[in-house]
């Protein structure tokens, strides 16, 4: 029995966190949220640690009944969230009353939506993470996607605090990336397995996401890429965002549930801060790759992390301004109390 009841699950709704780390060398995929940016922001907005477990929905969001009052934030793909039939904003903390029904609809912009709940979701950690790894049937909620009738418990039944509800992202920190299909890549590690003409084709053409795309990877369709000495390499490790090209010359972008190792040449690797754009691309969308140098990508990453840090800081000062801390003794026991000013 839990505080959240799944009335409708949607086709691919799972519990994720930032991933399962330290086990790649044993062949264990990291899993975790595909759009880590939207995921982190959702948690930050409700005052959770960035890596707290939250819900990831694809294409069509779930309908959830809340048996308790709660604070939630919805980020990522635009799924027109409604609370008891009334539209609610995304990228903002929202109060949910006891008994209310939250429904996310078909995605309008992007592909994957995230729902973070203040206090987090109570689930056992498997190998240090609450992420669902579907193929291994482990982690998350019973190792599977959510289905109708499932009930989730909150990790901490945190009080609804009014300050949370004013939490939204300052305009200068809000990023408009859901429909941005310009994907920056670093060429390699096997760029030399491709003809120079193919490398040029790869960087100048547009590649369409096929329906064969999931949490493991996106298969793309477009001009064929030619290998100089075959598509096969001696199997090696696959980084997040690696772009493999099998013998058919059609690229595959490797995502969260990717295998740890593989035997196809990798023409390039999507830079980490552009992975959320890939995560939000739908089958039929066309991606355009652009080459960038590692150093530059890392500078961009740094800037992005600084923006997130600023957001956290901004929200924290909002909290501080409104919260006072007291220590009180009741029956000889010391309690710490937070009092929030309205």
């Amino acid at each position: 029995m839990g505080e959240l009841k799944i009335i409708k699950a949607g086709p691919m709704t799972t519990i994720q966190d930032l991933g399962r780390f330290g086990y790649m060398k044993y062949g264990m995929p990291t899993a975790g949220a595909v759009d880590q940016y939207a995921f982190k922001i959702a948690n930050i907005l409700v005052g959770n640690p960035e890596d707290e477990a939250a819900i990831e929905a694809t294409f069509l969001g779930p309908t959830i009944q809340f048996k308790v009052e709660a604070v939630i934030a919805i980020t990522g793909g635009g799924m027109n969230p409604e609370l008891d039939g009334k539209e609610i904003p995304m990228w903002q903390a929202v109060k949910v009353s006891k008994g209310s029904k939250l429904s996310l609809n078909g995605v309008k912009a992007g592909l994957r939506g995230y729902i973070a709940i203040r206090g987090g979701i109570k689930l056992p950690e498997v190998m240090g993470s609450k992420s669902t790894y579907l193929r291994g049937e482990l982690g998350g909620f019973k190792g599977r996607k959510l289905k109708q009738g499932d009930e989730l418990s909150l990790a901490k039944n945190k009080e609804v605090r009014e300050f949370c509800l004013k939490r939204s992202i300052p305009a200068d920190l809000l990023e408009d990336y859901l429909e941005d299909r310009k994907i920056r890549v670093i060429v390699g590690p096997q760029g030399d397995y491709f003809t120079s003409k193919s490398l040029e084709t790869f960087l100048t053409s547009r590649y369409q996401l096929t329906t064969q795309s999931d949490r493991m990877g996106c298969r793309l369709a477009g001009p064929t890429l030619e290998h100089t000495k075959g598509a096969d390499i001696i199997s090696d490790g696959i980084a997040s965002g690696a772009i493999q090209v099998p013998g058919d010359g059609q690229p595959i972008i490797m995502l969260a549930d990717r295998q740890t190792t593989g035997g196809y040449a990798k023409i390039a690797n999507v830079i980490s801060i552009d992975l959320p754009k890939v995560a939000q691309a739908k089958p039929g969308d066309k991606l355009k790759f652009e080459q960038i140098e590692v150093v530059e990508a890392q500078q961009e990453l740094k800037k992005k992390e600084e923006r997130i840090a600023r957001l956290k800081e901004w929200l924290a000062t909002e909290v501080k301004k409104r919260t006072r801390y007291f220590k009180i003794k009741v029956d000889g026991k010391l309690f710490e109390v937070e009092v929030e000013e309205q």
Binding site: I186, G188, P189, I234, D236, G237, A242, V270, S272, A297
Partner: peptide, 17 residues
Amino acid sequence: YLDAGDKAVVVELGNQI
């Protein structure tokens, strides 16, 4: 030493098993 994106490197010691 080969870059595998902006968060990973590949250290390749040879090209055979």
